[in-house]
């Protein structure tokens, strides 16, 4: 049987929360919610898993810290530092740990640099956001003041419509699955 899509449009985020909860309680699949701003409390109701963005930032930060430490180790101590030994301000460059205090600022900056940028790039990739991409929102009003709940149904259309009509829905649009 052909899948069909319903777009239900709401004016208030509280209505979206309650209607999504009702629909999911009756095991009706809610595809997506488009909103002009984040609706707090929607993620568990919609059954979204927690995002792992923060974990990626931690990993990238560790990579940045290692990169910073290796860069300094090569330039000041092991590689270049062997060919051009330097004694600056009474801080000879024989060992890494002797000079560590003055290496901390740059190791810290590298950590932040890597974590911040690489996490943001990951974020753009995961959301498929890039310069010139076109919007995938079915209704341009969802960036203004409308909240859109997208549902797919097979044969229980009347139930869904009845349920939606009990809530404060402002518009119901039906579409065929592309």
């Amino acid at each position: 049987m052909k899948m069909k899509i319903i777009h239900a449009i709401f004016d208030d985020e509280q209505d979206v929360l309650s209607v999504v909860k009702d629909l999911r309680d009756r095991e009706i699949e809610v595809n997506e919610v488009y909103s002009p701003f984040p609706i707090h409390g929607l993620d568990p109701v919609l059954g979204l898993k927690e995002t792992r963005m923060a974990i990626t930032a931690f990993i990238y930060g560790c990579i940045g810290l290692t990169f910073g430490a290796l860069l300094i180790y090569y330039i000041m101590i092991s590689g270049v530092g062997k060919s051009w030994p330097m004694n600056i301000g009474g801080k000879p460059n024989f060992t890494f740990y002797h000079n560590l205090p003055s290496f901390v600022p740059i190791m810290f900056e590298c950590t932040v640099l890597f974590a911040g940028h690489l996490m943001s790039i990951t974020y753009l990739f995961r959301n498929k956001l890039y310069p010139g991409a076109t919007t995938t929102s079915p209704d341009p009003r969802t960036t203004d003041d409308k909240f859109l709940v997208e549902l797919t149904y097979t044969d229980n259309k009347d139930d869904i419509i009845a349920l939606l009509k009990k809530s404060n829905v402002t518009e119901i649009n039906e579409k065929d699955e592309i």
Binding site: E32, V33, Y34, S35, P36, F37, P38, I39, L42, D43, L46, L48, T51, L124, N127, K128, L129, Y130, P131, G132, A133, T134, T135, T136, S137, T142, T143
Partner: peptide, 11 residues
């Protein structure tokens, strides 16, 4: 950047 305001994107 093609922003569409999906719930996962907001999260």
């Amino acid at each position: 950047f093609g922003w569409s305001g999906r719930a996962k994107h907001w999260q």
